[in-house]
Design a protein around this nucleic acid. Structure first.
Lengths: 203, 203
DNA sequence: AAGATTATTTATCGATCGATACAGAAAGGA
DNA sequence: TCCTTTCTGTATCGATCGATAAATAATCTT
């Protein structure tokens, strides 16, 4: 049994990608339905039929973003040969992702913190969960390093993860404020200067 | 020659303060005129007569914010006995300011980065200048420390200032995401763990 | 007291917001 | 070939946006 009814006349994935770019650049509230339909090349009824609502479209756009940059950062962390290398790759790769030409600066999920007001509670929770998961991934990597003996058992993986996630989120803001890749890279390296002190002293 | 015409029936400073609290909490776009007039206890024509426009009101609110928390942080930096103490005070005091009960979390100016789209170019420039000035203050303090011999001449005040400002801006996001004072304080201390490495090595 | 000036209230402006009703078009199933 | 189903384009919905016109009230100047 194939699909019934008139087939969709546009590429759903492509339309979603264009919506993501708009949401990423301008945030949820500042992106209007007119801008969305114009960028996606479809009319409002088609958008609602395919995605349900502006809010649901945003959630799908967010999921698409995470499948891209989110997974990319997760892989950098997972494949790094050491905990230190994982953190450094996380920050340095973030610097690169935040300054790609042709894409909005900074992290879509992080920069949506402020847009919280205006989105539905459902979307707000999804965003918060996404941000919390990023820190959980870092923290899990550090905890694993403690188990393997790479890091001393006295180090506080929660606090260290919290610090580096904060730096990365700050980099998102700087990127939005026009910071270049070299500048963000220098910030990442500066944050790495804290590594020895953080992993040796009790935290 | 006293003021002519019917006197204003509300306290302009108080009304501005309430507008600032709203803008601080929700951002420019997400704050509607109805919410503003309701919170300020006045009607729309009174608001326009006293402040000109929603955009101009936002700029005044931003100036009021800077006169408060901005000046407070600047004083912490200026009065600190050393460059290191200045940075530490900047971060630790920020942590406290970002988590005061009864006030919105985080820094109004920093969190407005994303709202850039939606405000007038004039306001957008004012916000960017305000953020740049914060970093300039830090950098000037570090440069002064180099001149007095407190820091080696090889250290890079620009990069160091950029790093600590980034951490502070990240703390703004974390505060908005629900981070507590102890958590932000721990982040600030973690950032200070980079101090020796940053000020000794060439940067 | 009369005129000038400014603020206030009420009511509303045109524009835009997110979201739909409706009718016609394009496909599969019978 | 007709019927059902789904999508598309047009036109528009009620609500809300930021901002204002007009009339009234309150104060100073003369």
């Amino acid at each position: 049994m194939a699909e019934r009814g008139r087939p969709r006349s546009f590429d759903r994935d492509e339309a979603l990608h264009r919506a993501m770019m708009l949401f990423w650049e301008k945030g949820f509230q500042a992106t209007s339905m007119s801008e969305l339909t114009a960028a996606m090349g479809i009319n409002a009824p088609s958008l609602y039929a395919a995605f349900g609502s502006k809010d649901a479209l945003y959630r799908e756009a967010m999921a698409l973003y995470e499948e891209g940059d989110g997974v990319e950062l997760g892989r950098q962390i997972a494949e790094a040969p050491s905990a230190r290398a994982a953190i450094e790759a996380y920050l340095m790769r973030s610097a690169a992702l935040f300054t790609r030409s042709g894409k909005p600066a900074g992290c879509m999920v992080v920069l949506s913190v402020i847009h919280g007001a205006g989105t539905s509670p459902q979307t707000c929770t999804a965003l918060r969960d996404a941000r919390a998961e990023a820190q959980a991934i870092i923290e899990a990597r550090l905890r694993r390093a403690v188990e393997t003996g790479e890091l001393p058992a006295t180090c506080g993986p929660t606090g260290i993860a919290s610090f580096y996630v904060t730096v990365q989120q700050g980099m998102s803001i700087r990127a939005r404020d026009g910071a270049t890749l070299p500048e963000l890279g220098a910030i990442a390296q500066a944050a790495m200067a804290a590594w020895d002190g953080l992993t040796q002293a009790r935290s």
